[in-house]
Each structure stands twice: as structure tokens, then as C-alpha cells.
Amino acid sequence: MDEPAGKNVGHSGPPAFFAWLVHAFTASGAILAMLALFAVERGEWRLALFWLFVAVVVDGIDGSFARWAMVKEKAARVDGDTLDLVVDYLTYVFVPTLFLWRAGLMPEVLAPWLAAAIQLSSLYLFARKDMKSDDNYFRGFPALWNVVAFYLFALDAGPVAGTFVILFLVAATFAPILFIHPFRVRDYGRWPPLLAAVWAVASTALLWFDTAGPSRSLCLILSVASAVILVGLGLLRTIRGKRP
């Protein structure tokens, strides 16, 4: 009789306990989504974005932990990829959509339609078998609606600008454009993770500045500049093609 998956996988690597701990760490993103949702319902916009940013950090590092803990071998009963997708949909799409709606970043009359467009386009992306290229670039806009909500809120863009941004990015989900995954792409060495770290720190710090000032301006510049560079690296890959 075959041994159940994840049993008797040998003594190499850390104990199986750590593999299950990594699964729990990934699943904590659902709790962060719930906390963000509660904050949205109370109109605590900055707190909601903070919880969503913590979820981004969890999502950014849990893959490294999973590979170290050998979760596919030592906790194979749980499909970590499926768990990650479910949590990502909550934190990157569902809760941010409610944020965009409740924070007035889309016109009330169009909000149901725009929210539906976000959901459906994101489901398409999440269900694609070829969501990523062989060298780990996302095909089309990778449903980073938490980031969209952050910038529309931080820049006080208003519902009209929000409508155009949402429609453009929904269309970009289906476009033959590549977006970089800063922690999986190897084309640029350690630069993408470094840029992602700068973006995360600057963006999180930006949430705590209520009024304009030098500190807020610096955080905004660092946040936008690092984001633009990361997007630019994806566009560069789109134009030049895959490296040998």
C-alpha cells in the first residue's frame, strides 16, 4: 500500500511541525482580511490599508518559508498553492474592492458595475493556468487592487479619476503585458526584492501622515518611484522577450 502523502518523507530538512506552521502563517492572511474589512465598515481607512499591507508582507515571505520548511513534502495534505490563492483573493481583491466602494473612490452610481468588473477580471487572472510566464512574470495586471486602493486614497484621487484607473487596469488584466513578481523573478538579481522593500516601508509610513509635509512628500516619492521602476521592469521584459 502506498504511504499517505507527507508521511515518512525522511529526516532531511526541518521537522514537519514547521511546515504546518507555515500553512498557518499563510492562512493568517484571512484574519488580516477580516480585520481590514472591519476597519472598512467603521470607516477607518488608514487602519484598513495597514492590515492589507501586513497581508502583502505575509504573502511576500511565506513562499520562502514554505520552500525552507518543505511544505509540499511534509504537510502535503494541505495544498499550499490553493490556500495562497484563496487568501490572496480576499486581501488583494475582495476587501480592496469594498474599500474602493465605501471610501468613495468610485462613483456611487457606477460602483456596483466597477466592483463587478474588478471581481470578474480578477477571477479570470486567478483561474488562468498560465497566470505566470516561465520566468515568473505575471501575464496582465496581477489584481493588485490593494495597491490601487492605497494610491487612490493617498493621492485623494476622487471617484472620477478612480473610475478611469479601474477601467484601465481591468482592461490591462487581459492585455499581453507582463508585470514583475519581485520575489520570484531572477533577471535583476536582488534589485526587485530591494525595490519591493523600499516600496513597502515608504508606503506603510505614508499612511501615518495626515497632512502635507517634507516627511510625507519623501515617503510618497519613494513609494511612487519604486512602484514605477517595478512596473517598468515588467514592461521592459514585455518588449525585449525572455532572456536565454
Rank of each mutant, 00 (worst) to 15 (best):
A69C: 05
M70F: 01
M70C: 07
V71Y: 02
V71L: 06
V71N: 03
K72P: 00
K72E: 11
E73D: 11
K74A: 10
A75K: 06
A75Y: 09
A76K: 11
A76T: 04
A76C: 08
A76F: 09
A76E: 12
R77Y: 09
R77Q: 13
V78N: 03
V78Q: 06
D79R: 11
D79H: 14
G80M: 11
L83M: 12
D84Q: 12
L85C: 10
L85E: 09
L85T: 13
V86H: 13
V86A: 15
V86Y: 15
V87Y: 13
D88A: 14
Y89E: 02
L90H: 13
L90N: 12
T91A: 13
T91V: 15
Y92G: 07
Y92R: 08
V93C: 13
V93S: 09
V93N: 06
F94W: 14
F94V: 11
F94C: 10
V95E: 09
V95F: 09
V95R: 11
P96K: 12
P96T: 12
T97D: 09
L98M: 15
L98F: 15
L98D: 06
F99W: 08
L100M: 10
L100Y: 00
L100E: 01
W101C: 03
W101T: 08
W101F: 13
R102P: 01
R102N: 05
A103K: 07
A103D: 09
A103H: 04
A103E: 09
G104T: 10
G104L: 12
G104P: 07
L105C: 08
M106L: 11
E108S: 14
E108K: 14
E108F: 09
E108L: 15
L110Q: 05
L110D: 11
L110K: 01
L110T: 08
A111D: 04
P112D: 04
W113F: 15
W113Y: 15
L114S: 01
L114W: 04
L114C: 04
L114Y: 04
L114N: 06
L114Q: 02
A115R: 00
A115D: 02
A115E: 00
A116Y: 00
A117D: 01
A117E: 00
I118Q: 00
I118S: 02
Q119C: 14
L120D: 01
L120G: 02
L120V: 13
S121W: 07
S121L: 03
S121R: 05
S122R: 04
S122E: 02
Y124F: 15
L125E: 01
L125R: 04
F126G: 01
F126Q: 01
F126T: 02
A127Y: 10
R128C: 09
K129H: 13
K129C: 00
D130H: 08
D130P: 01
D130E: 11
S133Q: 06
S133N: 05
S133F: 03
D134K: 02
D134G: 13
D134L: 12
D135I: 08
D135Y: 04
D135A: 06
